Simulated scan of single mutants.
Amino acid sequence: MPGTTEYPVQLIQPDGARVHNPEYRALVADIGPDELWELYADLVVTRRIDIEAVALARQGQLGLWAPFQGQEAAQVGSAHALRPDDYVFCSYRETAVAYCRGVLPSAAAAMWRGVAHSSWDPAAVNMTNPAIVVGAQGLHATGYAYAAQLDGAEIATVVYFGDGATSQGDIAEALTFAASWSTPVVFFCQNNHWAISEPVGLQSATPIAHRAVGYGIPAVRVDGNDVLAVLAATRQAAERARTGGGPSFIEAITYRMGPHTTADDPTRYRTAAEIEEWAGRDPILRVRRLLERENLFDTAAQQRLDERADAEAARMRTEILTMPDPDPSALFEHVYSAPHPLLDAQRAEYAAYLADDPAEAAAPGPRGEGVRS
Rank of each mutant, 00 (worst) to 15 (best):
Q149N: 12
V88H: 03
Q59M: 14
Q71K: 10
G114P: 07
Q59S: 15
W65I: 10
Q69W: 03
Y146R: 06
S78K: 03
A79N: 02
T95Y: 15
G135W: 00
P122H: 10
S119H: 14
Q75E: 15
M127F: 07
G70S: 12
A109D: 09
A131D: 00
L62H: 05
M127D: 02
L104D: 14
A153Q: 15
P67W: 00
P105N: 14
P105K: 09
P67A: 05
Q71G: 07
Q69S: 15
D151G: 14
S78M: 13
V103Y: 00
T142N: 08
L104H: 06
L82K: 02
Q61H: 15
Q69C: 13
S119G: 10
D121E: 15
Q61I: 13
S91H: 10
V97G: 03
A116T: 09
A136M: 05
A148Y: 05
Q149D: 10
A79M: 07
A145L: 08
A107G: 08
W65Q: 06
L62F: 07
V125C: 09
L64W: 10
Q61T: 11
C90P: 11
C90W: 00
Y92E: 03
C100F: 06
H117L: 14
L139P: 04
S78Y: 04
D121H: 14
A98S: 07
S106H: 14
T128H: 00
L62Q: 04
A123P: 02
V133R: 05
R83H: 14
A74E: 01
A148D: 05
A124Y: 12
A136W: 01
Q69Y: 09
P130V: 05
A108E: 06
Q75S: 07
N129E: 10
G138V: 04
W120T: 01
G114A: 09
R101T: 07
A66F: 11
C90R: 12
A79C: 11
A136N: 08
A153M: 14
V133L: 08
Y87M: 11
S78C: 09
S119I: 01
V88C: 12
Q59I: 11
S78G: 13
G143A: 05
F89H: 00
G114N: 04
A153F: 08
V76K: 00
A109W: 01
Y87L: 10
A73W: 02
A74T: 10
T128N: 06
Y144M: 04
N126M: 13
M127E: 06
P84N: 11
R113E: 04
S106G: 06
S118A: 15
G143E: 04
G152E: 13
D121S: 15
A81C: 12
D85C: 11
T128R: 01
A107C: 12
